[in-house]
Design a protein around this nucleic acid. Sequence first.
DNA 1: CTATGTAAACAAC
DNA 2: GTTGTTTACATAG
Length: 483
Amino acid sequence: MPTGQQEHQYHLSAKTGSSSPANGLIQMDAPQPYNPCYYSLDTWARSRSNLVPETIMPPQEYTDPWGMGSGSYLLSPTHSTKRMDHQTQSQYSYYPASPSKVTSASIMGPSPNMGQSSPEVQQHRDQDESMEWKSNCITSPSFDQQNGYSYSTPLGPSGNPISAMRAPPLSPPFSISSHSPSLSRDSTSPLNTLPTALTTSPPTSIAGNSEEDFGADPPYSQLIFEALRHTPGQKLPLQGIYSWFEKNTTKAKDQNSKGWQNSIRHNLSMNAGFEAIKEEAAPGKKAVNFWRLTKEASRRGIQSTTRYRKQANHRKAISPGPPVPQRQRSGSKGGRASKSAAQMRHHVQDKRKEQYRSRPPMHQSPRYYSPLPAPSSPSSPLPHQQQINPSLDPSAVPMPHYHAPHSLAPAPNGLVQVYDHSTLIGCTSPPPGDNQVFCDPVDPGTNYAAFDRAHLGWYGLPSGFNNGPMIGSERPADLHLGV
DNA sequence: CTATGTAAACAAC
DNA sequence: GTTGTTTACATAG
């Protein structure tokens, strides 16, 4: 088996020693080698000791793999921008293609110059277009030591805040921070301003190792999201994900430990934003499992794995027994040790879970690793943000500018992927309710649904976009919503 | 309390 | 052995 071929196909090297031979046979869709990340976690990793300048992403034609759109989208040259501060814990931000650009491009069609220039020329133009995009951007992030990146209201050509022209304003597109969710959206920090508090905060080492003090990786779910998102076809086998991590993250730094692989698998399994599909790598060849982003995750970003965990638990919990014998999921039981430990506290935990299920919706808004607004929380009104009344008629709610049917995720090769749900073999089941992913696990009917309607037009899009709950063959066979 | 990471049991292949 | 699923625990915030 020519390992070089495998490396070419993924542009990755499998160093785990656990690679399945089948990987070498996988024919990726793209003729070009896999570029693990356009805005490049490589760049990020190399530049951790500095506040990295924006990594410019080349414009790309993107054909929505979900077939949601009617044509191809021109992704903004600044499809994603990441800033990383080396002295803090994984504070960074991504923000997506210019919504307006995407929207307009979907009308105008791809740029004739797209992808034709030399890298140097392209980069210059990209930078120019980056500036253009910034001026068009609905929000732009600014860094704050306490809050990570927050999003100021950018000025439009007239000097007026863009949010004044487009309502409702949007929350951070892609903000990851373990800090307070109360982002200072009215921050006036310029995009490229170093946080002044930077040096005053003790670095949060990921391992107490000075070598790693420059920062930690984003969460697994986020990294997987990025790995899949920037992969041709937006899918990878497990080994491909491993390899991506090895190449682009520090999670896999410890080659002796396989814990990071376990964590990847855990996140893949438990996060409803990921789903597994069986696909024949080549005609006649054995089918290979690919992981890809769900439609929702592709369009809207990934949520924390924890939430899905909870949701899965919730779903399970509310299932009124097994009227229909559910297919046993492999490894459905927990560990022995944990079981015995659980026995000792089951009576306590049962009470706690019961409490959890019956309590009102969580006070804390979910994190969206996406360019999407977090649900409006009545208890935490946000400056510059229009509060959405869930009871409002969705059609009466102003639609955010970028909520045209488009995906966050570029398909770098611009190929159309035919997604067959019948091949779906693994995906953590969505929570109950009419929104399979972005549903409040505790109270599916309230805030999240309202959020969808209000902010996303989730149900406001033409029926052809099929944004509703999964039906028929869309629904995984083992998905029981418990309704 | 949530988010995250990790360990581990276990089933299926 | 690998992959996928699940439970449980620890820790940070």
